[in-house]
Write a protein that binds this DNA or RNA. Sequence first.
DNA 1: ATCCTCCCCTAC
DNA 2: TAAGGTAGGGGAGGAT
Length: 1081
Amino acid sequence: MAEKKRKLALQYQADASNRVLSTSTSSTFGSSSWTAELVTSVNGSNAAVPCNELTKLFNGISIFVDGFTTPSHQDLRDLMLEHGGMFQNYFSRDLVTHIICTTLPDSKIRDHRSFSRGLPIVKPSWIVDSISCGRVLPISLYAHERIAHSHPNQLTMSKFFDYTKEDARKPSYYRGIIPASEPSTCIREETPYEGQECIVNTDVVHDTRHLQSIQEPLCKENLESDLHIKNLVSSGARDDKKPVSCSENVRSHCALGDANFVQNYFKNSRLHFIGTWRSRYHNRFNSSRVEKDQQLENSRMLADNGHRIVMHVDMDCFFVSVVVRNQSELAGKPVVVCHSEKTQGTAEISSSNYAARAFGVRSGMFIRDAKALCPELQVVPYDFGAYEQVADQFYDVLHKHCKKVQAVSCDEAYVDVTGVEDPETLASCIREEVFDLTRCTASVGIAGNLLLARMATKKAKPDGQFRILPCHVEGFLSGLSVKELPGVGWSLQERLHSKKIYNCKQLQCVSKETLQHDFGVKTGDMLWCYARGIDNRQVVTHQERKSIGAEVNWGVRFETTSDAEHFLTKLCEEVSERLQNTLVAGRTFTIKIKRRKEGAAEPQKFMGCGTCDNLSKSITLGCATNSVHVMLRVSKQVFASFHLDVREIRGMGLQVTRLESHPTRSTDEGQQHQKALGACLQSFPTGNSRKCVVDNKSLTKPSKETLSSVEDALLWGINRSQLKEKKGMLSLGKICKGPFSGLKRSSLRKEKGKQALSCLPHHSELDQSVLASLPPDIIEELDDVYNRAVTQHFSSTQKPHSLTTVSVLGGPPALVQPESVVAVANKNYAIKLIREEEEFSGALDGHLRISNMESCPLDERAQTFCLGGTGADSESIAPLSLSQVDMATLEELPFELRKDILRSLPPHRCSNSSEVELLGVPEQPQSILPLAKISNPASISKDVLQLDGLWCGDPPKWVLQFETMEGAGTDALHLLSKAFFDCGCPKQFSCILLHAMCFHKFIVYNGVKQDSKDSVAFRCCLELFKQYLLPQVSGNLEEVFTVVRVLKRLAREGHFWDKIFRVILPSIQEATREIYGGSLL
DNA sequence: ATCCTCCCCTAC
DNA sequence: TAAGGTAGGGGAGGAT
Ligand SMILES: Nc1ccn([C@H]2C[C@H](O)[C@@H](COP(=O)(O)OP(=O)(O)OP(=O)(O)O)O2)c(=O)n1
Ligand SMILES: [Mg+2]
Ligand SMILES: [Mg+2]
């Protein structure tokens, strides 16, 4: 404690000296000279952004781009950098000379004026036009009218207006919830968020450690009593069962009021800033693979060697220091960075300086609690631009001294200084340089590993350094509480406490086996090692990214489904952009939802998410994508599958994993999509010139990589309104294997219990005949869910039939009661019945059904049946094509239902056909006389066959030619011709193929094995595909893709098609490569 | 055993 | 009013 105080005093002195320094040097730092250097170095080391400076046109101009623009953020950035200008990711008054934005909604005018502080706001065309004119055009031509004509003092007026408006219509939930101030009460709800809403006891202000324990989560007993309090409060004070509808004024602060809410939100979010900082860092200091390998080598060497020296460097109260350095009047005073300084505010403290910490003020506290602890607390606003700049300077210093720098965060890094003769001198040297450059102090810890170095830094703070020598490790650790070990947070601390383990010494007494048993293998090992100061992690300069995501859990209030979908769209746009900027694409997309916990009141925190249930679901595509269109479709489906009341949503996120490098960063979305398709084509199996070996296994059970594509995941749903007309046909039942059951597992687990049952149909509503045909294990599962009511109710003497019987149910759909959702999962099977009234569709389930079928052996697929789901939004979830539909399944359906499914296809899939035509008149179309009659197919050469120009003419030549051909396997040709007419003579081959697949037994020909390669049918088909596909590779890749996909599906049905596929694919792939080059791979 | 999904925890 | 994000590690439990 005395040591801390001494350090505090030291820092105050440092602050005082800062003041002197700042007055003497501020002119240098205030100017943009620094930035110029910075940006140059950024470009120089950033492989992602080509730095070919074309002109010096924008010399001295530094833009900040706000909101959506055309050209895009990225393009404007490139344009500026190419023409000698600068681009700031974050707004900073000091660094930015012009703000660029396209549109300026009302809500933004105020914001901009309040922080642009007189900077010109210009339309993006200013940049484009200036470049084309070769000179910087006057900004007055590109000003926003509403800004240009307003007067400075309108700022205060508009602010005043807004505030009064808000006061006048303060939402009831907000007014009602401000608690009576009771200083020593801690109200803690179940989630960490609500846990923050405790009121810190003002009686215990000066002992840091004690305070920390109050701020941290409470022990179990407290938690329970707090819950008790909470329950009293919620049942007594306000028990709102129905969600509060957002008033106008709330709208203006949440996702509802602002179309660009997500963007604006992120712009102001500190957590977003620190969360995304690392990716910006890696864009700047890109370490090459060679370096990586070197590093691995080194680390292996050093690990053998045994003794390393690691340094941990961390800026002191970073956000505060950066802002305070120019405000000498704040030196020595307790200062925090916070959005608000309202005494009753629920804004969070981002960082507090050491003077403020003496009062117990910490990061993450509400400002009102901080003010209660320290009434004279000074509040300064954020300056993200400056944090970014200082962080860069900080890392410049570190890189200058050492190659092995591991970035932890914007203010913190590990440096491997093994081999450095005098690490302590190096440390003070670094600290000094950092201070000289930034006028902010850093502290350093030095030790034999990352763990100890980090803990040493803590001891060194503020503005100090501390080394833990091997001989002192023991003594250093013995004094630490378990919470002080990195990796031990709230939860682990509580669990340790519950086992009467409070400090490292006690922790050391527990055997590794016990710890691993109690906390898991890795966690147990970690605890055991850390308690002894053992840490074998290496300093890693570059870690491969495993996921990219965005989420918002503040200000999220929706009224309608389209509110939620709009929000989801914004998230997709955001994540897609991040993927593209990182040159990656992903295969697994996870939607995260925070849903208001049942009975939870509005949170204490203004616009917060409060106590929530966290839900998440993911979907994995066969092919990585970063296309915003694809992502949106996928996300909407996953979202829909939650079946949520959107008014209960308090947070939403999208995370992408299974990332793959994706070198295309196209600004043209269409082109992007095109390339994604091309990439998918490339990723089909047998994509090499090697001889194709028929793998029996892969015919029945294709490996995962062989499956699908981007769009295999998109798939089909049935238009809900159409289905509604059908009433009796609404039901969907299915049995499938695989991921489906996994998907349902968690929601089922979560929903088990009373509340969950409320959404199940009463057991008496279950159709007996359906139940009867279920496999025994499913019955058992159902029984579980219904608390054995099922078997009681049906007292079934009937023994369950085999799976095959189930498909029979596909016939008369009325067998299944329409109003029900039953989701049951066990280790092998899942059954799902979709209820008609569901707000959202079972579209995702539709997808899963398909993908499951794909991954099932053929015979099982044939047993799967489907009648369609209910679709909320036919446009967004409609299938891309019928290629996704298992044909065996479809064939089992009644004609009526097939009609429904076909109708649900997007019209462009069968461009030339009206719906009626599409649905087809069952009888044969008028036959047209064949052009040639071939009598001896085996001897016919290509010339005789005249297989050129098959797609010329109207109808295309092949249609008539194939119709009357004779020979082995020509049935397939006849069918194609028939399908052509049946589905209305479409131009797209994919339509014809799909039609043929859906309505006819279009498989066969496994018998034709020996000569299939030479058979007429084979060669005709081959030519037909080739001549159709190859010319389209350059133009209509999507169609190529679809056809290949259909063909792939056919390939699984028989040798004939398999061979065609295996011959066609390589040539398509080659053509694709030729046209799109290596960029596809 | 190893993978996968759906969580929770931790840190900044 | 306020801007409670992001990414990695890891555990539980199921599928393969
Ligand atoms: N809950 C948190 C934690 C951190 N930060 C931001 C503000 C901090 O300034 C910065 C760096 O985090 P540190 O943990 O390094 O904290 P400080 O640098 O503020 O203080 P210290 O001197 O303890 O490092 O991250 C934040 O906004 N909210
Ligand atoms: Mg710090
Ligand atoms: Mg830090």
